[in-house]
Every structure is written in structure tokens, then in C-alpha cells.
């Protein structure tokens, strides 16, 4: 069975028979590609059946996290979403869908534009508070123009994004993190609380769990 998490920028593909995992840009997916089931912003273009992203995230948390109470946060290129469970029960979720988002994509674009290696930059205490990725980039360029090192300016933006994500997720004492930014060491180190990274295929684990729970309704 082929599972697909078709995000805004990247597609994560899991072949459940071979356990082969692939990440590629959504733009590079063949137009004829059809996964059996999946989730993500672009899923309806590339899969026969789809699972709501928050639902997938919830089921992933229940499948992968041993604690009964946890906060699982997914920071992608376009948006961020989280689920909170207490004593095994769903308590809360939210999703910053459009305005106030595009943070992940902004961090990636900024890194390319300023030629930054995020793994080699130290986290900053000071941070930039920005409403969205585009406004955040504007702040970084202003700081660079006022002689702040590009890496430090970008790190302040990333710290600001981390603070925003922490508040967005209702200030938990520990965060399980998934999404594209788990691969950004500076981002992970800038989180203000203990942060445990799950891989980028987490949502697909949720899709699997959801499909198993609804096997009478889902045709695989």
C-alpha cells in the first residue's frame, strides 16, 4: 500500500510493503501518481482517499507516543497544527491555516537566500515577533541592513517562530514535534521547552492508525 503526505511543499511517501520512505517536492510528483490513501494540503490531487490532517495527527500521537498526556505539534512549510491529549482523551487542537502562517517556507527561503547553514548557527535569546513568515523576512532584511549578521538575524526570527509555536500550542511543558522543521537543528534548539522530535512521516503513521480503526469504511 502506498501512503502519501502531500504537504504544501514536500511529499512524504511510504510504501508499507517495503517500508521504503521517500521525500520529494510536491511539484516533482508525477501527475498520474495516485497513493492509496493519504493526508496533507495537496492530497486530493494525488490519492484515492484522504484523511483530515488534524485527525491524522491525533491518531499518530496515539500510535507513537507512550504517555497518555501529550502535546504533538506539526510545523510545516505553510501552516502549523497541534493536538493535546490528557489521560488518553483528546482535549484540544488548533490549526493556523492561512494568515499568520508560511513560517516554515519563509525559514527555508531565507536560508537559501542568505546562504545559511542552520545546523551551524547558535540559537539566540532575543527574538523577532512576526505575524507571518513574509513579515518576518522583512524584519530580518531590516536587521541585516542595520549590520546584524545574517545568521543571527535569521536565528532571532526562528526563535520568534518557536516562541509563537510554543504559545500557539498553549505553553506545554514538553512538545513532541513533527513536520519539516524537525530537520532544522537551529529550530529544534530554539524551542523554549523540552522538545522531542518525531520524523516527517508521523502523519502517515496516523493515517495507518486511522485506516485500521475505520477499516469497514475505508476501501484499501
Amino acid at each position: 500500500m502506498i501512503l502519501l503526505d502531500a504537504g504544501t511543499t514536500y511529499a512524504k511517501i511510504l510504501n508499507t510493503e517495503t517500508n521504503e520512505k521517500t521525500v520529494k517536492k510536491v511539484a516533482e510528483l508525477e501527475k498520474t501518481f495516485k497513493a492509496d490513501i493519504g493526508t496533507g494540503h495537496n492530497i486530493n490531487r494525488f490519492a484515492k482517499q484522504s484523511v483530515n490532517e488534524i485527525i491524522a495527527l491525533s491518531y499518530a500521537g496515539k500510535r507513537l507516543i507512550k504517555e497518555k498526556s501529550f502535546t504533538l505539534l506539526d510545523v510545516g512549510s505553510r501552516d502549523a497544527k497541534y493536538v493535546i491529549f490528557e489521560n488518553g482523551n483528546f482535549i484540544h487542537s488548533d490549526w493556523n491555516t492561512e494568515c499568520g502562517a508560511f513560517t516554515g517556507q519563509a525559514i527555508e527561503i531565507l536560508g537559501s537566500y542568505l546562504n545559511l547553514n542552520y545546523n551551524a548557527i547558535e540559537p539566540q535569546k532575543e527574538f523577532i515577533t512576526a505575524t507571518c513568515g513574509l513579515l518576518g523576512m522583512g524584519h530580518v532584511f531590516d536587521m541585516v541592513a542595520s549590520s546584524v549578521e545574517p545568521g543571527i538575524a535569521a536565528a532571532r526570527l526562528i526563535k520568534g517562530v518557536c516562541m509563537s509555536m510554543y504559545r500557539f500550542a498553549r505553553k506545554p511543558h514538553k512538545i513532541y514535534l513533527t513536520g519539516g522543521l524537525v530537520n532544522n537543528a537551529l529550530f529544534v534548539k530554539s524551542m523554549p521547552v523540552e522538545t522531542i522530535c518525531l520524523d516527517r512521516f508521523t502523519l502517515l503513521e496516523g493515517v495507518l492508525e486511522y485506516a485500521a480503526s475505520k477499516k469497514d469504511d475505508i476501501n484499501l
Binding site: N52, I55, E98
Partner: peptide, 22 residues
């Protein structure tokens, strides 16, 4: 909290339906 600008977007619907389902 859910907000809407000119009309419903796919993301807003997904957020709402997930909330009601969960």
C-alpha cells in the same frame, strides 16, 4: 476559534470538521 475572510477555505473546513469529529 475559527475565522473566515471572503468565504470558506479548505483549511478552515478541515480544521472545523476535525474539531467536531475529535
Amino acid at each position: 476559534f475559527i475565522d473566515m475572510d471572503l468565504g470558506l477555505t479548505r483549511s478552515t473546513v478541515a480544521k472545523l470538521t476535525a474539531f467536531l469529529q475529535l
